[in-house]
Design a protein around this nucleic acid. Structure first.
Lengths: 249, 249
DNA sequence: TTGAGTAGTTGAGTTAAGTCAACTATTCGC
DNA sequence: GCGAATAGTTGACTTAACTCAACTACTCAA
């Protein structure tokens, strides 16, 4: 069955209206089975949850949900990439996070009353997500309270991760914020160099780090000129993270 | 029995060494019973948890725990006030949160492996905290998995709250960050004015908002000169929050 | 109560980062 | 593969915020 959704883009558009395709294909669900939230679930419990979920395709810049909208679903990213952002009273768009395939998100407001999304979520490119009904998950937790431990662990990690994000933002100058952001993207910590891919377009990384796109561009050009990073589109190669850290002081 | 603790202050000192006073006094525990984490606990389960906990007095500037220290306890504030901070590689002290009586904290790393504290915690003035052993709480959750739901709700709220803190920090100028910080301190939202008390000394609020103390002082002086706030030590009176929001654009 | 130490304020000069504008490069839909 | 729209870069100029310094006001403990 077709995915029914209002197809508008950007801030102006209505969002998810109704979706009724059943999830008959099984591809992409291995990642779901190995996610920390679901790996402890008994096979039939997970199957039941998946059965009640829907697969949803999103186009470039398509909005998945709005801030303060009642939250009936949470999401698992099968492919593509999404971003979370908030709009303040003056309508300024503040990017707060990006979500990659294999990530589970939007759980944050589930236990608020009434449950509402804490931000906007939109696709950065064409993406596919699994919509998991909050009600189905809560019923599962009611039946098997031992599953809550995995959820607890997941939330605790998320809180620590946001705490760390906040730490970076208390760094007072733009260059050092950017350097710390890049270091955190390195998979193997600070001892090994490596290639990192910016999880957002540069202008949105700039917004996430509370600086102007021009400032971001200039800082990156300067790091490049000093041989600290090599830049190839959204891919950055950092050969010596220790040197980067050293200059950020 | 006496509280045994190395009594040094500030960054140099060792911390909690051993504590062995039993919690025989009962005052201050009503707040604990009404905390979201514990209010759903059966009376005897909570009593057992309290029985395994210890009351701890902290002096002004005394350190409770260090970042990366194994986390054997989490804490409930009975009186006083604490702050959470991190030290980066250059030793700069970054204040990230303050904790008031009735708050429960340090839970964040409990489910990491190995469980470790994600930051430093120190008393801002003489304070009293309840040290709850992580092990005792985990055993309780193992026995009664239904209790995990309350913990889940608590963590979810914390994650949203950190998310919101992050949003403020993506605001690019110091004045608007300070205004949004003040607005968030108002108990009744933005429609009513009121008096707020800064939860940290001004120099630490400045650090929390990624600005210099001088900048903080100048912005506050300017808001005062424009009749937007009245300042009395750490107490601020905001008569018209809407006007404050209006100028922050 | 006093005096040392910390916290907060104010001024003057400097610098980092924002703004505006012009331009180039890239992406995506047709 | 073309062209419009978006994203990214660079330069010139302006402004917000930092730095350093001098000072005042608290706080706490002897």
């Amino acid at each position: 069955m077709a995915i029914t959704q209002s197809a508008d883009n950007r801030h102006s558009k209505p969002v998810l209206v109704a979706v009724n395709n059943t999830l008959d294909e099984n591809d992409g669900l291995e990642a779901l089975r190995s996610h920390a939230l679901f790996s402890s679930l008994k096979s039939n419990d997970l199957d039941s949850l998946i059965h009640q979920s829907r697969r949803l395709r999103l186009g470039h810049h398509q909005l998945l949900y709005r801030q303060d909208m009642p939250a009936h679903h949470f999401f698992f990213v099968l492919s593509g990439r999404l971003r979370l952002y908030r709009l303040d009273s003056s309508g300024i768009d503040r990017t707060l996070d990006s979500i990659a395939p294999g990530d589970c998100f939007a759980e944050v407001m589930i236990y608020a009353d009434p449950p509402r999304y804490a931000c906007y979520a939109e696709a950065l490119k064409s993406s596919e997500v699994l919509m998991i009904p909050v009600k189905a998950y809560q019923e599962l937790l009611d039946q098997r309270p031992e599953y809550a431990q995995a959820a607890l662990r997941h939330y605790a990690m998320r809180a620590v991760s946001r705490f760390h994000d906040l730490e970076i933002m208390t760094v007072q100058n733009a260059r050092d914020r950017l350097i710390r952001y890049l270091i955190d993207l390195l998979p193997n910590g600070t001892h090994e160099g490596g290639e990192v891919e910016l999880p957002l377009p540069k202008c949105l990384v700039a917004s996430r780090l509370a600086m102007q796109p021009e400032t971001f561009s200039r800082i990156l050009a300067d790091l490049k000129a000093n041989g600290l990073v090599r830049v190839n589109r959204s891919k950055l190669f950092i050969s010596d993270p220790q040197r980067l850290i050293a200059i950020s002081q």
